[in-house]
């Protein structure tokens, strides 16, 4: 196992641990300290970050795994998490490839979009897939989207630093291109 691959595995492990920490923070820390506004969904912000900065195919399967992890913190059924996340991923990924924006501003805009898509998809899919569908709860959902939007700006710098520090995406691309060239020469 070469160094690049080892670092990549470590990055995945670190992001999974960070994901668990963010879920724990949202369910057990924030509600005990601040009761008047909902906690930012850091796990969703992380997922949007991965959507825009990681390679698509791997990210989709990793998101399915993270979706399963989410069910350990909530009553949310697996079918709802997986179907909602794949739609959110697809929309964010599609829009990301069609806008000429980079950096924190683009991330904040895409988080706003991703959170909105997540809430809308959840509401509609719940109607379709669940025996007891969820309520519209406009104010709760709007507030949640707003909180995610506000917190996405500082979180972008944290996640970006964490992402590049552990394993740079360009290195990943470069290593796979090299491998591809080697295969062609052979």
């Amino acid at each position: 196992m070469n160094n690049t691959r080892l670092r990549f595995y470590f990055k995945i492990l670190a992001f999974t641990v960070l994901f668990f920490i963010s879920c724990g923070f949202q369910t057990s820390f924030w509600p005990n300290i601040i009761t008047f506004i909902p906690s930012p969904q850091i796990w969703l912000i992380m997922i949007i970050f991965m959507t825009i900065s990681w390679r698509p195919l791997f990210t989709i399967f990793y998101l399915y795994f993270l979706g399963y992890c989410l069910t350990r913190f909530s009553e949310i059924p697996l079918k709802m998490v997986w179907s909602t996340l794949i739609v959110t991923y697809s929309v964010v990924w599609f829009v990301k490839n069609r806008i000429q924006l980079t950096g924190a501003f683009s991330f904040v805009v895409l988080t706003l979009l991703g959170s909105t898509v997540f809430e809308i998809t959840y509401y509609n899919f719940s109607d379709f897939l669940e025996v007891t569908p969820t309520s519209f709860m406009f104010i709760d959902r709007a507030l949640q989207i707003l909180v995610n939007f506000i917190f996405s700006y500082p979180l972008y710098f944290v996640l970006n630093k964490f992402n590049t520090l552990l394993f740079d995406e360009n290195e990943w691309k470069r290593s796979t291109t090299d491998h591809h060239h080697e295969m062609q020469h052979e």
Partner: peptide, 13 residues
């Protein structure tokens, strides 16, 4: 020790 992760469900841990 915990509340639900999403607004759509009302559970506690």
């Amino acid at each position: 020790i915990g509340r639900d992760l999403v607004t759509d469900h009302n559970t506690i841990t």
